[in-house]
Design a binder for these strands. Structure first.
Lengths: 212, 212, 212, 212
DNA sequence: AATGAATGAGATTTCATTCAT
DNA sequence: GATGAATGAAATCTCATTCAT
């Protein structure tokens, strides 16, 4: 209705209306991370989103749909945006990796989205198509990007001639470790995990190991 | 046990009675890995174990108890046995790590137990005490062992003077990557993940990076 | 309640929401009386209350909670209200007892609540705290009230000097007999039990026995 | 087998064999009284009887059969024996009643069987035929006996001309009260119930009320 | 658009009963 | 005669989903 009207002055509740799906997904993200897909109740998600159960069904067909939206939406914003803009990078692959890790710590690790991989891991059995989606859309895109950087690094003579795909995977391993530690073991651990030092040490060893 | 008697002729069902819990745990391991804790039905576990629902309750108080037994029992056998016997290792730390990775591939990665970490990750929110147990009993023991090897490697002058705990974590990262890949992404992937080459490449780069 | 507002137009389901717990308790009363606590199925209670299983759990945490509510709620309305207003009675203790028995026949015996004592008796082993509650809240209150009337009757010279507590218990015995007969033996009996004549004969004999 | 043999020297286990059903019924009596029919588990009954679950089924077809045996067997021994021998009583009806109450206290009230009426009350809904059986075999026989005594008392001019059946019921009421108190409220009560004084006071009042 | 009472399929768990030993 | 492992029907309880308001 009223589609012709100038939308300059949105009422408060109109802004809410558009914000709702996002609020629900945020709530769902938190609860899926906390309890896993099955143990997260729609009621709890609703309460955390500040609505009632029924409202969720105005925006999503089912719990499964909430979950799938979540796993799909949240990617492009953080990881891929960063990744793509970085794909045009020109310069030292080591410099690139340092920035890449720094971005990861800043944008992902200390962010709500860091729980998504954990969710994907836990529910890969029940939602194989999501596992596939993530592998294709997130992991392999990241791998391709890293492979490209590695390959160009080899071409530039800065990196030994090693299979670039494997190197890309090795570059990802510490990131996975950070994510798993943060979302799985950090809460029950007394000693903290110094992610920055960990990644810095990795760079030190990894870069030295890669050089010709 | 069995200190009292020869008792050569155990009844058929006495032999079963001793075998049952193990059979049930094996079935549960498979199903929890496949579907996660919540989505795995007791009935399915029973069927896979070749019994009926009620039988499980002769040996375990509840589904939760099955899960906890599972997560606790299955450790010592595979990982820790290997780890401990290796802790008396004398020689090059690089040699040790190579053996360690080979053992891991052989005993864990291509074995049912490889799904346990995945389960722990997925259910850490619902069973925080298990996450803690795993961190303390599995991860930190492995870390301590690796730290020791690294430290002695540094003392022997074969490894640069770097924080050995961080190095130990870096040594674990590729293992985590293998486990996650195998249990989460392998089934929906067309191209295989060549774990051996991956770990070999890791050794190549990692060892070179560690040397003085 | 309702202090805040006029709210003249309650929704249909708001009215139901207030009525539901009572409807469920009535249904539960009937079924617990008929089959006992354990043999009464939640489904049957629901059907008799005109709802489905799940609905009961919107209002009560568990079957046990339904039972406890039942045993606690239903008292004050019938027995205690009558008892308390009678506690201010002034006049002949015999007159009082006659009215008391008449009230009992009218308000309790030919009423749903008459099954509650039977339920308490049958389940006292499983719910000892309820047996205690009933003894304290129903029986002992009634006894205290009757004792008071007897004592004042003795003071007035209308009753022999006998231990008033025992007399109170003797005054309750025929009531218990009526309740047990009605709820336990009446359905399988061909000849009826004439409660009015029974209590009248009791009064005849009891009163004559009490007089000096 | 061996039916022809002289049975003078029964083996120990043969005596057990014959004792078993009784031991099981005793155990069942205790458990039914404690928890009611439904909540009493066959396993618990077996354990208390010192046998295993399966053994019960050698002597009884089902749980229901155990219950029915129990409710039927235990009568003749205690109540009816006493009742019948008393039915030939000649003399003062008051004397008779005193002896009757004394016997009740001695043989029933401080005996395991005192829980039977409680069980019958609690399970009358599920086992109406047992309620009928008890009414016919226990209550009405007792009533008939008491009625006879009362009637003869009226004939002898010792009791006013009142409906003897009602008087018989009134004579039973305090007995019911004792039974219910003992089996339902005694365990959760701090003050004891002085059954002897209670019945003595009853006799005092009751007898005076009956006299012409 | 939002609510929340109601539903009912489906899960866990219990326990009377069976039967091979 | 006795055992006790195994069964499976049946109960309680949960929660995603619907729909009248």
């Amino acid at each position: 209705m009223d589609q012709t009207a100038p939308k300059r002055h949105l009422h408060h509740w109109q802004r809410r209306k558009q914000a709702r799906p996002g609020e629900i997904l945020d709530a769902a993200l938190a609860l899926f991370a906390e309890k896993g897909y099955a143990a997260a109740r729609m009621e709890d998600i609703a309460v955390r989103a500040g609505v009632t159960k029924g409202t969720i069904y105005l925006y999503f067909q089912s719990k499964e749909e909430v979950f799938k939206s979540l796993a799909r939406e949240h990617i492009s914003q953080s990881l891929l945006v960063a990744a793509e803009q970085a794909s045009q990078f020109e310069g030292s692959p080591f410099e690139f990796l340092k920035v890449f890790y720094a971005r990861f710590v800043e944008l992902v690790l200390h962010n709500q989205v860091s729980v998504l991989p954990k969710i994907i891991i836990g529910e890969s059995g029940n939602f194989p198509e999501l596992a596939r989606f993530w592998r294709e859309e997130v992991i392999e895109k990241a791998m391709t990007m890293l492979s490209g950087v590695i390959t160009s690094g080899i071409a530039r003579g800065e990196i030994r001639n090693l299979p670039s795909e494997m190197i890309a995977k090795l570059a990802m391993a510490p990131i996975l470790m950070c994510l798993v530690w943060r979302t799985t073991f950090e809460q029950t651990s007394d000693r903290g995990f110094d992610y920055d030092t960990f990644l810095a040490t990795h760079c030190d060893v990894f870069f030295k190991g890669l050089k010709p």
